[in-house]
């Protein structure tokens, strides 16, 4: 329909989360009208990000280099680990300023419908950290929806034999919601009011 370079861009944009075919078309034509320098700045930002940023080898947060900013900070309490689904959830927890420990990013939640089981998540890596890093408390900070709750229960059962303290963030978060949309105050309170998980 369009010159193939434009169609390629529309197809690529359409693969992004939350971008439908109509929006992809609109963005593509917006970029077409943009001065070359502006459009290239976006292209450079994407390639720089891909070249410089990867995942932290310890916690799977986004990192420049081998370790993320949080793992590099020795003021953080290494004995407490907060387990989240995605790096963006770390941003949400950090905003509360209620938490001084480290993190572990699972890179998803258990969801058989999407073909995601424990083996597709960073679960083995979490178990390895428990021994190696002398962790004494794990806070399960997965989303308060069905999949997040199931993942928390799975991890609580898996970690029970290790004999450490495992807690779940308290409710008060909107059920069925996403951590990243919870406001700081609510999430802060949920962190303070964490409880032992039923397992």
């Amino acid at each position: 329909m369009y010159a193939s370079a434009v169609q390629d861009l529309i197809d690529e944009l359409g693969r992004l989360p939350g971008v439908g075919p109509k929006s992809a078309q609109r963005i593509a034509f917006h970029l077409l009208k943009l001065p070359t320098e502006d459009a290239l700045r976006l292209a450079r930002a994407i390639s720089e990000m891909k070249a410089r940023i990867s995942f932290c080898r310890r916690c799977f947060n986004v990192a420049e280099g081998e370790a993320c900013q949080i793992c590099l900070d020795d003021r953080r309490d290494a004995s407490v680990v907060c387990v989240v689904e995605e790096p963006r959830d770390i941003v949400a927890v950090e905003k509360t300023q209620e938490y001084r420990g480290r993190y572990h990013v699972l890179q998803g939640a258990i969801s058989p419908i999407e073909g995601i089981g424990p083996e597709q998540l960073r679960v083995r890596e979490l178990l390895a950290r428990v021994q190696a890093e002398g962790i004494t408390e794990i806070i399960l900070c997965t989303n308060p929806n069905i999949e997040g709750e199931a993942t928390a229960m799975y991890l609580a059962r898996l970690l029970a034999p290790a004999g450490l303290k495992v807690t779940r963030i308290a409710s008060g978060l909107p059920v069925g919601g996403d951590l990243e949309y919870a406001d700081e105050l609510t999430l802060g309170r949920a962190l303070q009011g964490r409880r032992d998980v039923e397992s």
Binding site: I110, P112, G117, P118, E119, A150, M153, Y154, R157, L158
Partner: peptide, 8 residues
């Protein structure tokens, strides 16, 4: 793995 996920 499957058995314990099913348990959940």
């Amino acid at each position: 793995d499957v058995a314990s996920t099913l348990d959940v």
